[in-house]
Amino acid sequence: MNDWHPSPSASWTALPALLTGHGAGIGEYDASYIVDLSPGQVLNGRVSADIRLTESWGTGAGLVCRADRDWTFVAFYTAPQVQGETRTTVARIGVFREGTLTTVAQLPEAVVLSPGYHHFSLEFFSGTIRGEIQTGEHRYELQADVPHVPFPGYAGLIRLYGAGVLARRTAVERTELPFAASPAAGVAGRTFEYDAFLCHAKEDGAEVEKIAADFESKGIRCWLDSDNQILFGDFVTQKIEAGLRASRFVLPCVSKNLTLRGWTRNEYGAILNAEFSGDSSRITIPVMLDGAEEGDIPLMLRDKRRASSTNKVEFEEFIRFLRSH
């Protein structure tokens, strides 16, 4: 057990080519987990294993990442679910914090596990988690944004409901790059409905609407918090968050008004923080409005190359950049 740390200590056995989980766990979910100490703590990376459950229903198992030794980690796992008289197995992403489980996402389709081994993988980069189960006949994939555990930790396996588990070919890899996209997805595993999210102060609305119209005429799809995007009765914060998630580039429109608006800072700030963590799936690019000066640029954006909306040559180059990306 030199390289493996189980919790509870008697619930796992580490053999040279096999991990076995057995006996009772702890807490409401009768859970236990084991992590590989040899790679050290990992912030961004991937853990994978071939996992076999001794029973195909009524039990659960999966993988963990960013784990400490005191029951805080992110997990991708299968679990039983009963709906009326129907019993199914589901795949979930959840967060354990000091032993308390919060479910973050669940795959809408049922997971069918036949007897034998199935390949589980869990990729984690910045706040994005993606889990995958490969069976002989099907591939199940679940992805979610999980900012709950932002610090590095160990990776390994979890079992639930006292499940008997066999795991072989367990591997932990660290990476400094976003994980590879699945074949049908776009940048960093995502496709985007919009090319640009225009983040601006209310006082600059008329000028920004002209920029949006120029973008749209050149084939650049824009999200702008106008009457077309936010309808009467909509929850404004939910619509804005959905727009950010659906946009490839976030463009803070710099003016003397921008820094006075805390709301706009919240919009581009979340994306900027993800960039600082190494997640380049969305990128912030400052756009200088008419009359904007160097001192109007927010401090955290001053290191970025910006585009000027009033310099026609430069702005055409910027439009070509957006179209090509």
Rank of each mutant, 00 (worst) to 15 (best):
P6D: 00
P6L: 12
P6G: 01
S11H: 06
T13P: 06
A14P: 04
L15I: 04
A17P: 13
E28C: 05
Y29H: 03
D36V: 04
D36L: 11
L37Y: 02
S38A: 14
N44S: 06
S48T: 15
E55Q: 08
G60R: 01
G60F: 03
G62Q: 08
C65G: 09
R66N: 01
R66C: 00
W71K: 04
Y77K: 00
T78N: 00
A79F: 00
A79Y: 00
T86G: 07
R87N: 10
A91P: 03
G94I: 04
R97N: 13
E98N: 12
E98I: 14
L101M: 11
L101C: 06
T102E: 08
L107V: 01
P115H: 04
H118P: 04
L122D: 01
E123V: 01
E123Q: 12
F125K: 12
I129R: 06
H138V: 12
A144R: 00
P147H: 15
H148D: 15
G156I: 11
L157F: 02
I158R: 03
G164P: 12
G164N: 08
A171L: 15
V172Q: 00
A181F: 07
A181G: 07
P183R: 13
A184Q: 11
A185I: 01
G189V: 00
E193C: 04
Y194N: 05
D195M: 13
K202W: 15
V208R: 08
E209G: 01
K210S: 15
W223M: 02
D225Q: 09
S226M: 09
L231I: 11
F235H: 10
V236F: 10
E241V: 07
A242V: 07
R245D: 10
A246F: 04
S247G: 06
F249S: 00
V250R: 13
S255F: 04
L258P: 01
T264R: 13
E267T: 01
Y268K: 09
I271W: 02
G278Q: 07
I283D: 09
E294N: 10
G295N: 12
L299W: 00
A307T: 14
K312S: 14
K312T: 15
E314G: 14
R323A: 15
